[in-house]
């Protein structure tokens, strides 16, 4: 009986911690997505040159690799997250402007945005309701990412539309897998830092949006 008395509060505390991480993650994710949309809107209006996406992506990667790991356990981590998401949002400006200049560009953007939202909400709800541990996928997802990055490097120079299409489709599947994996980790106590959890989910959403935009652009665009 004594063991039960000791176990029950611990289980309750763990559940409280998980709920807190989950709540904080979704609150921060909502704020960063709004901030990202705001900086993307500013970028659309400013119409910066095409290389903006490259510069902001490199800056965001530097923040993700070198600054975030050192600040993730402090309030400074919040500023870094907003820095990363703001930069990535701003970098979308030239791409979105290119779509907006096509006949049905705004429809493609809104469809990609809505589609991304539905995919994220549905997968999150699935992971939250099933409470499954998807950590067995970790290695496979990382290997998939490496294959996609190598294919993307090759396609920069080969510029094959079929390969571009394949990469976009695989990225959507991989990022969907990452949403299940990351949400499963939060639910099962594998991730207790809401800043890192937010960044992971944000990057999945961002990549799904960009890849969906490219797929819809190829199949439904006029360019």
């Amino acid at each position: 009986m004594q063991a039960n008395y000791q176990t029950l509060p611990q289980t309750g505390e763990l559940a409280q911690v998980r709920n807190k991480v989950l709540k904080n993650t979704y609150a921060l994710l909502a704020m960063t997505l709004l901030f990202s949309a705001l900086t993307a809107g500013v970028s659309i209006v400013m119409n910066p040159p095409q290389f903006t996406g490259l510069v902001t992506s490199i800056l965001a990667l530097l923040l993700l690799w070198f600054v975030l790991p050192r600040t993730a356990n402090s309030a400074m981590g919040l500023a870094v997250v907003f820095g990363v998401t703001g930069l990535l949002g701003f970098g979308l400006g030239p791409l979105l402007n290119a779509y907006l200049n096509t006949a049905n560009g705004s429809q493609i953007i809104m469809t990609a945005l809505g589609g991304t939202g539905i995919i994220f909400l549905a997968l999150s709800a699935y992971a939250l309701m099933t409470k499954r541990d998807f950590s067995f996928m970790g290695g496979m997802l990382m290997v998939g990412m490496i294959v996609v990055v190598i294919a993307a490097i090759a396609n920069i120079f080969m510029a094959m539309p079929a390969l571009s299409l394949t990469i976009s489709a695989i990225v959507i599947l991989l990022m969907s897998g990452f949403i299940l994996y990351d949400t499963g980790r939060i639910v099962n106590g594998g991730e207790t830092n809401y800043i890192l959890a937010t960044v992971s989910l944000y990057l999945s959403i961002y990549n799904i949006f960009v890849s969906l935009l490219q797929l819809l652009g190829i199949f439904g665009g006029d360019d």
């Binding site: 990667l61 067995f136 290695g139 990382m142």
Partner: peptide
């Protein structure tokens, strides 16, 4: 720009490879 993108993605590979190796070894079945 192509070269810069390739370098950025190449740097990403450098960061991803050790993480992937670690996850492959330590992921539960």
């Amino acid at each position: 720009m192509k070269i810069a993108w390739a370098l950025a993605l190449g740097a990403m590979l450098v960061f991803l490879l050790p993480r992937a190796r670690h996850m492959l070894k330590n992921s539960p079945k």
